[in-house]
Design a protein around this nucleic acid. Structure first.
Length: 255
DNA sequence: TTTCATGTTCAGCA
DNA sequence: GTGCTGAACATGAA
């Protein structure tokens, strides 16, 4: 489920359950280890203590007590689950703490882990943009040039880090902007609207525990599925591929 | 049985 | 260099 708000919720969940605790053992099973990682992830985690966390967009970094970082990339289906007895289905990284166990579960194996010496160096090597909750207005505004579809820009993690397919659709819907509009055609006021709703939508979702059903009516995310319609004008949703991803929009309310 | 999925990355091409 | 498309990754769910 992870875009920025989901990963932030995961970060808090992991901190609540594992902060300050020692990893007594770790087991990797079938998830990709990034080439940037130090060689033996299981051995690198063994005996370490979790002493903090950082997040950039959809990437989560757990600080270890030897100065290294455990990177978790949740892909499209990853999720952390604490458990005691029965290991959850799809567990592909398991860590044992003195009083509980943590599973990182990926239903699909799109995702990856790594142990890094320095998470900032990793982010800069990957050319990740600023986190969507901390992106400076000037940098945001300057991204809007060129003929590329505005939605492609919003999904570009080197522009702003953390906005994914669903939240991009919601941002565009709330501002009455079609996803396929060229970035350079977006007016200054519209850019400001997108910037403001990026912050407000992501924060709202974090506040709501990323549960779309708790979102106020009038938003797209709780009704974003085929067969549903625009809460404002009741027109059925239109869909098309933009930037390689399925996009929902209202032909009537967005232009 | 077929299609689709909240992500990332890369090859190929205009 | 820019940006787009399609594919690959892998697997469950509709």
């Amino acid at each position: 489920m992870p875009e920025l708000p989901e990963v932030e919720a995961f970060r808090r969940r992991i901190m609540d359950g594992a902060m300050g605790k020692q990893i007594q053992s770790a087991r990797l099973d079938g998830i990709r280890v990034l080439p940037e990682s130090v060689p033996d992830v299981e051995a690198s985690l063994h005996g370490r203590r979790v002493v903090g966390s950082e997040r950039n967009g959809k990437s989560l970094f757990l600080a270890l007590d030897d100065g290294r970082w455990l990177l978790l990339h949740f892909g499209m289906s990853g999720e952390p689950v604490f458990f005691h007895d029965q290991e959850p289905r799809f567990t592909r990284l398991a860590m044992t703490f003195p009083d509980c166990k943590l599973a990182i579960c990926w239903q699909r194996k799109l995702g990856a882990v790594a142990v890094l010496e320095d998470f900032r160096a990793y982010l800069s090597a990957k050319k990740r943009g600023p986190d969507a909750l901390e992106a400076p207005w000037d940098a945001f505004r300057e991204g809007f040039h060129g003929r590329r579809a505005v939605k492609s820009l919003l999904l570009d993690q080197s522009f702003v880090s953390g906005v994914g397919n669903l939240y991009a659709d919601e941002m565009l819907y709330q501002n009455g902007i079609l996803p396929q509009r060229p970035a350079s055609s977006i007016s200054e006021d519209e850019v400001k609207g997108l910037y403001d709703s990026m912050g407000s939508i992501l924060r709202l979702s974090i506040q709501m525990g990323t549960d779309f059903s708790r979102f106020p009516s009038g938003m797209m995310l709780n009704v974003r599925h085929r067969g549903s319609s625009c809460p404002r004008c009741r027109s059925p949703w239109s869909t098309s591929k933009v930037g390689g991803r399925t996009s929902f929009f209202c032909q009537h309310c967005q232009r």
